[in-house]
Amino acid sequence: MISIRGLTKRFDATTVLNAIDLDIADGERVVIIGPSGTGKSTLLRCLNFLDRPQSGQIRIGDLHVNAEKATKADILSLQRSTAFVFQNYALFANKTAKENIMEALVTVQKIPEAEAEQRALSVLAETGLSDKADSYPTSLSGGQQQRVGIGRAMALQSDLMLFDEPTSALDPEWVSEVLDLMRRVAERKQTMLIVTHEMQFAKEIADRVVFMDEGRIVESAPPDELFGAPKDERLKSFLRRINK
């Protein structure tokens, strides 16, 4: 069970997240949609303190972090119970595909190297990249890099996987292979919080869709309901704009 209360983030005078409350059940897949610049990515980044929120409570399982008083140890625990998939992949440039997946297993989770390697190879097989195990990121396509990025996050077996617009930086030809992989991750009952502009994908994969606007959660409902019978005017106009 993940619970977020009153999460607030300001950049200078601008309030990017305004007292966000959100609960996510174990195994639930929540997709966040909304106009650009409404704090969707910032919400994800505040959950593992890539951006530091000014206030609010984050609970992931037994871990409870108060943003105002978060210590280094709190932040590390949060980062260790979440996994993050970046828009720009952010693979370790000095490591091969296999090493990217193994890295945190060995250094953070202290899994013996041989076992970590086995796990990395099986994750690579799931991502369909077994033949790229020893390739460095620069020699992979965008789609392949993002699949390794997802694989790196999968291997962590974390309580919550965060996806920050994982297909936005991809050439259109690579989008579907990445979405396919995310569908497979979803089948494992992995708790997922996904920011995306792929509405069809959201409808299909989400247990619940959250619409954010101007730093707030405006509406939150199962996809049929949110897309089929939107209540808030802002959501209606957003859906009209993207369906044109």
Binding site: L50, F92, E103
Partner: peptide, 22 residues
């Protein structure tokens, strides 16, 4: 690149691990 620091944090590395390994 900043993304390398963020990726290292996101997988739960300590500051020292991030420096040494990445």
């Amino acid at each position: 690149d900043r993304s390398q620091w963020e990726a290292a944090h996101s997988v739960g590395m300590t500051q020292a691990q991030m420096m040494r390994r990445i």
